[in-house]
């Protein structure tokens, strides 16, 4: 399962970078979305993929017994999703406003400040 996830995450990163290299603003945005999801999935996988084992400490025990998934990593992902959502929402508005001002979707036309 971890191998499958690794391949999936690799494909997501590759697709994200590819999309970000395109000239269209919308594809750039899709690239950014893929990228943040890829990073989240990576953390999810790194923390261990375990099914049906909640990280609860049994009565009387000191630590979690057996291989449960790491809850901290999932808390990190939650935070990262929220942050990612916020900045992507900003990016959507920015690109929309940019389109209204520049009247083009083509990144090659945006060289005025280089």
């Amino acid at each position: 399962m971890t191998t499958m996830m690794a391949i999936l995450i690799g494909c997501l990163y590759a697709a994200a970078i590819y999309m970000m290299l395109r000239r269209s603003m919308v594809k750039l945005l899709i690239g950014l979305i893929l990228l943040s999801n890829a990073a989240n999935l990576l953390i999810f996988t790194v923390a261990g993929l375990e099914r049906g084992v909640p990280p609860l400490i049994a009565k009387g025990a000191e630590t979690v017994v057996g291989g449960s998934a790491d809850p901290l990593a999932q808390a990190l992902i939650l935070t990262a999703i929220v942050i990612g959502f916020g900045v992507l929402a900003f990016a959507v508005v920015l690109l929309h406003r940019a389109y209204e001002v520049i009247r083009t979707d083509d990144m090659n036309e945006m060289k005025g400040t280089d």
């Binding site: 994200a16 970000m20 603003m25 750039l28 950014l32 990228l35 943040s36 890829a38 990073a39 989240n40 990576l42 953390i43 790194v46 923390a47 990593a73 990190l76 990262a80 900045v87 900003f90 990016a91 920015l94 690109l95 406003r97 940019a98 001002v101 520049i102 990144m107 945006m110 060289k111 005025g112 400040t113």
Partner: peptide, 29 residues
């Protein structure tokens, strides 16, 4: 217009950097 053009580059590259940072944190963890 100049601000929009500049901001698209600024936002994109900084978000890319953040994603890489997050990836690095994940691997480190």
């Amino acid at each position: 217009r100049a601000q929009m053009e500049g901001a698209i580059k600024y936002v994109t590259l900084n978000l890319l950097s953040s994603a890489l940072f997050l990836t690095a944190i994940g691997l480190l963890y």
